Simulated assay, not measured.
Amino acid sequence: MRAYHFLAGEKATATKMNLGEMVGWGVLAANAPTTASTTEVAVISATGVTLRTGRAYQFELRGLLQHASASTTDLVAMRLRRTSTTGTLIRNWGSQVVSNRGTVSRNNFVNLSHIGANDTGSDLVTTVLATYSWDTGSTSTFTFAATVATPATLAIFDIGPSSDYPGIGPIT
């Protein structure tokens, strides 16, 4: 279920309660390539996404993170980018806690969201991808885990005019 996002003082209207039109979708049905370094690795992508100018978008990433050591807590860095693992940064989600509590490869649910606006003056047709890399903790290998039965997803929604969301991050 999607959450509604309202800013302080903003009025909830029927138009704003609309869930928005999905403009991008990516599914990961098998484990992403692993990472044990600070080099970003692509987790999941949505290709051929059109981000129209003057519009706001909500990006939602859901999946399972795990690492191969039995340490209590490690951190993995998660980012949202355009085009490639070194492409334009849309959002640095920062460090996500991967807590194995002494059990190797325990699943940790990830549910990340971001709202951004394309106010560049032109439509952007692009690939949007989530990336991950080792941040701190053990030097163990991280895995963004997925199967057909438990896929990871990246969903992108057009949620309305960017003017309805003052102060949100730009998409360039």
Rank of each mutant, 00 (worst) to 15 (best):
F142I: 04
T35W: 01
T72E: 14
A30R: 15
R79Q: 15
R81F: 11
V128A: 02
I90K: 00
V148P: 05
Q96G: 10
S37F: 09
S99K: 13
A77E: 13
G137D: 00
R82K: 08
S45N: 11
A117D: 07
K11D: 11
T172V: 08
S71P: 02
S113L: 12
T85R: 01
R106P: 00
G87V: 10
A70T: 13
T35V: 02
V23P: 04
V27T: 13
N100E: 13
M78Y: 12
A145F: 09
F6V: 12
W25I: 03
S45W: 06
G160V: 04
A145S: 15
T88H: 07
P161V: 10
F109V: 03
H5L: 12
A46F: 05
T13F: 00
V49T: 03
L124F: 01
T34N: 14
T143R: 12
D164F: 08
V148T: 15
P151C: 15
I44F: 01
V43K: 00
R81G: 05
R101C: 09
S95V: 06
R79V: 08
H114L: 09
A8Q: 12
A3F: 06
A152E: 03
Q66A: 11
G26M: 06
G94L: 06
T53Y: 05
N111F: 10
A155V: 07
T35D: 06
Y57W: 00
